[in-house]
């Protein structure tokens, strides 16, 4: 079996195993797995409203997945997507309600603000990694909580002691009446275009530019990259910052598209952590991320239909996602199994 086939088979087998585990758990808990999965399917594709909201859910997942995948490709682990998303969300909303500009300037400006804020938040981790060899995983985890509480404090400050920001102006919104009518009043918005565009940007940057080649080279082997005359430090900082910009844009999707404002949060959105699952499933390629985000975004949104339609707790989907992650991460064993299987066939 060629490497390429195995690389595609590992995630597919993991998904199937995850769904089987989910069915077993449902069955063992006295729920009907078939009704459960039917409700899930209906929740994703049932009508135009569901499809619209599913696409809306996929949008930030794509960007969060791109953020994690981009960092992975350059040898970094950005577990701080959650925090970068939060600061990006706030920055986008702040620009969205503070300024009064024509839409053609306002919307791009708000998106840019989110990217810059998310990029800056990740830059801190990249800088510490490059200059002081501090491991980025721990720093980004700490920055997640710093972002959560700091932004809560900011929301309180800008709303004079309230718990949510003002709503953004129409000119900064990603929503449109056209999409609303098309999808039967779902919250689907134009952010999907931004997300798809960014997937292309990541592909182009990594595969078609010198800079992308350098970023990947540093990720593969720092010493070789340095020997070839590349600046390892500069590339680490840059890679982390770009990753953070994707994450910041994921926040803008929530701020400018789905909610139009930001409320205080007592826990994380979870999108950032799910982004790790998305990137992992998508083998850290832009196309794979689109696929992974579509799957996990659909599952997450479709799950909301499960309690009503089948009486199954929606948490079952999070369990399935966690199991899929475990299986993909343990890909070594699946690879081993596939190789043994292939050998047996050859022997025959």
């Amino acid at each position: 079996m060629s490497n390429r086939v195995v690389n595609i088979l590992v995630p597919i087998i993991s998904i199937i195993l995850g769904l089987i585990v989910g069915a077993i758990i449902m069955y063992a808990s006295g729920y009907d797995p078939i009704a459960g999965y039917q409700a899930l399917w209906q929740g994703i594709f049932g009508d135009m409203y569901s499809i619209g909201n599913t696409l809306r859910q996929i949008t930030p997942y794509i960007l969060a997945g791109l953020a994690v995948a981009f960092a992975f490709r350059t040898g970094l682990f950005n577990i701080g997507v959650e925090g970068q998303l939060i600061v990006g969300w706030f920055a986008a909303v702040w620009v969205g309600y503070t300024f009064e500009l024509p839409a053609i300037i306002h919307l791009p400006l708000a998106l840019l603000a989110a990217a810059v804020a998310g990029g800056f938040w990740a830059f801190i981790a990249g800088f510490l990694k490059a200059k002081l060899q501090v491991h980025e995983v721990i720093v980004t985890i700490m920055l997640n909580y710093t972002a959560l509480y700091a932004v809560n404090g900011l929301i309180k400050y800008v709303s004079d002691g309230g718990y949510k920001t003002p709503t953004i102006h129409e000119t900064a919104s990603l929503r449109s009446d056209f999409l609303k009518d098309l999808t039967d009043f779902s919250t689907f918005h134009y952010g999907l275009i931004v997300a798809l565009l960014m997937a292309f940007v990541m592909w182009f940057l990594l595969e078609k530019t010198t800079r992308g080649y350098e970023l990947k080279a540093v990720g593969f082997n720092q010493h070789a990259a340095e020997y070839a005359g590349m600046s390892v430090k500069k590339n680490i900082i840059l890679a982390m910052t770009i990753s953070g910009m994707f994450a910041g844009l994921a926040g803008a999707m929530e701020g400018l598209g789905t909610f139009g404002k930001m409320s205080m949060m007592n826990a994380f959105t979870g999108v950032g952590f799910d982004g790790i699952a998305v990137a992992l499933l998508g083998a850290n390629t832009p196309l794979g991320v689109l696929f992974g985000a579509s799957l996990f975004g659909s599952l997450k949104y479709g799950a909301l239909n499960m309690p009503n339609a089948a009486g199954v707790p929606e948490e079952i989907v999070s369990i399935i996602i966690a199991v899929i992650v475990l299986f993909v991460a343990s890909g070594y064993v699946i690879r081993l199994g596939l190789q043994k299987l292939a050998k047996k066939k050859e022997a025959k």
């Binding site: 790790i276 079952i316 369990i319």
Partner: peptide
């Protein structure tokens, strides 16, 4: 780290 993330997801969801 990935396995730890999965444990976090699984612990809460479960």
């Amino acid at each position: 780290v990935v396995s730890g993330v999965a444990i976090n997801l699984l612990g809460l969801a479960g």
